[in-house]
């Protein structure tokens, strides 16, 4: 799941400074689940912006909309009917991940689309209100050799050959309560009696499948050349 957090209201306020009529567009997907861009957050942000405008004696109309998944054109298009003329609103604030912001912008070519969230990482809730990073989307999964614990996403230095010298008592040298991924891997492999897999040298990784290979595009063979 994509984890995101809302930008500070000050940041959002500055972004919408030029506009008198805006719409906040939430998403019912990941960002609802991570409490950043669901119906509640849209309503709260709208109320806060209206209050702020009232406090400053500024005219501001805020519309609230929810989209099933903001990363799909088909779900966004009904919105185009809600705002047929561009003069209806002057700007859209997307409370979705960065993907949603861009999809929204593609559907509204003549309207400014602003991000209301900071898209943080791919992760999961450890418990209510606490999310942790688990995958880096590097494009070439190595979890088979690392005891199903990802050192790319979870080691601060994305090391591939074991813990660096900064690992102490299971914690990473960068602090902040970050666990040493390699310590976890070591313990898990020891439990599975598979420590031997750590003896062999992991050769340099092919990062071309990560973002370093340029923007990625995935095509299922059977859909190639289809319209």
């Amino acid at each position: 799941m994509i984890i995101a957090e809302r930008k500070s209201i000050t940041d959002i306020w500055q972004m919408i400074e030029p506009f008198k009529r805006i719409a906040l567009i939430g998403c019912r997907g990941c960002v609802t689940v991570c409490m950043a861009g669901g119906a509640k957050e849209v309503a709260v942000l709208a109320a806060a912006l209206r209050l702020a405008a009232h406090e400053r004696g500024r005219e501001l109309v805020v519309f609230e909309e929810m989209v099933e998944r903001q990363c799909e054109y088909e779900f966004i298009r009904p919105l185009q009917r809600s705002y047929p003329q561009e003069q209806a609103v002057e700007g859209l604030v997307s409370l979705a991940c960065g993907i949603g912001v861009q999809a929204l912008a593609e559907c509204f070519p003549h309207l400014p689309v602003l991000p209301g969230l900071n898209t943080s990482f791919l992760g999961m809730p450890e418990r209510s209100g606490v999310w942790v990073e688990r995958c880096h989307a590097c494009g070439q999964c190595i979890l088979d050799s690392t005891g199903a614990i990802c050192p790319i996403a979870r080691c601060a230095k994305n090391l591939l050959n074991g813990p660096c010298g900064g690992s102490q008592e299971g914690m990473c040298e960068i602090g902040n309560g970050v666990e040493c991924a390699w310590h976890l891997i070591y313990e898990r492999l020891a439990r599975l009696n598979r420590l031997d897999s750590l003896q062999s040298l992991a050769l340099p990784k092919n990062w071309a499948k990560d973002r370093d290979g340029g923007p990625r595009r995935l095509i299922r063979e059977d859909w190639e050349d289809e319209v």
Partner: peptide, 8 residues
Amino acid sequence: QYLQEIGL
């Protein structure tokens, strides 16, 4: 906190 941010 965010009421303060919006000046309330």
